[in-house]
Design a protein around this nucleic acid. Structure first.
Length: 209
DNA sequence: CACCAGGAATGTA
DNA sequence: TACATTCATGGT
C-alpha cells in the first residue's frame, strides 16, 4: 500500500507539477482563507481576501480589532458571511489569547489540533489545513475531493474522516512537503476528473482503474 | 433554471 | 452513531 500511494503521488506530480499551496502570502492569510473556503469555491475566497486587503483587515490582529460588520461586508463574496464573520473573530481571538504562532507552535500536532477544534467554526478539515499549511505540521488534510478521489480509483471507499486521514498518514512518511503537495494534487486531479466525467480518459491514473 | 463549491454547527432519532 | 437542515455568494 505504501508503494501504491507513492506511485500515485509520483504520477500526479509528474502530470501536474508542484501546486505551491497554500495560495496565500502570510500564515494569517492561510488561517483566514481556511475559514473562508468552507464549502466555497476558491475563486470567491480570492475576492473576499482581496476586499480584506483593501480594507486592511487581512491579518488576525486586524480582525481582532475590527468591527464585525466591516469584516462581514468584506467577505461577502465568499458566502455564509454572517457565520464566517463570527468564525474569523473566534479564530483571531484564539490566536491572540494563546500568543500567536510562536507560542502555539510549541504544542505537538495532536494537542494543537485539539485546541483548534475547540474553536467554534473550525472543524477537522479547517484545523488540519491550518496545521499543515500554516504551522507546517505533518498532518494530512482530507476533504470531499480526497474521498471522491479514493473511491473513483478504487483505493478506499470510506467516508470516515479520521479513517481516511490515518490511511494516508500510516502509509506515507510524515513529511510536510509530501503532505502539502499530495493534498493539493488530489484536489487538482479531482476537479478535473471527479465531477461530471464518468469515465477516466486521459487521467494520469487511468491504468489503475 | 438547477446545481455545486477546498465545511461546520445544530438538531433529531 | 447516523442523517437532515441551515448558512449565501458566484460560477457553470
Amino acid at each position: 500500500m505504501r508503494e501504491l500511494l507513492l506511485e500515485v503521488f509520483n504520477k500526479l506530480l509528474d502530470r501536474y507539477g508542484k501546486q505551491h499551496w497554500w495560495p496565500a502570502q502570510t500564515k494569517d492569510e492561510v488561517v483566514i482563507g481556511a475559514i473562508l473556503t468552507q464549502n466555497t469555491a476558491w475563486k470567491n475566497v480570492e475576492k473576499a481576501i482581496d476586499n480584506l486587503k483593501k480594507a486592511r483587515l487581512c491579518s488576525l490582529n486586524d480582525i481582532n480589532k475590527a468591527e464585525l460588520d466591516l469584516i462581514k461586508e468584506a467577505i461577502k463574496p465568499a458566502g455564509f458571511f454572517n457565520q464566517k464573520g463570527l468564525y474569523l473573530k473566534n479564530v483571531a481571538t484564539f490566536f491572540h489569547k494563546h500568543g500567536g504562532f510562536d507560542q502555539l507552535s510549541k504544542f505537538n500536532a495532536s494537542k494543537l489540533r485539539e485546541l483548534l477544534l475547540s474553536i467554534k467554526g473550525v472543524g477537522r478539515e479547517t484545523a488540519d489545513s491550518i496545521l499543515l499549511y500554516a504551522f507546517e505540521k505533518p498532518m494530512f488534510v482530507v476533504d470531499a475531493y480526497t474521498k471522491k478521489f479514493l473511491k473513483r480509483h478504487e483505493i478506499l471507499t470510506s467516508d470516515d474522516y479520521e479513517l481516511v486521514q490515518r490511511f494516508f498518514m500510516e502509509n506515507l512518511p510524515k513529511d510536510v512537503g509530501l503532505f502539502n503537495e499530495y493534498h493539493a494534487l488530489i484536489v487538482k486531479n479531482a476537479k478535473e476528473y471527479c465531477r461530471t466525467k464518468p469515465i477516466c480518459r486521459g487521467c494520469p491514473l487511468e491504468d489503475l482503474l
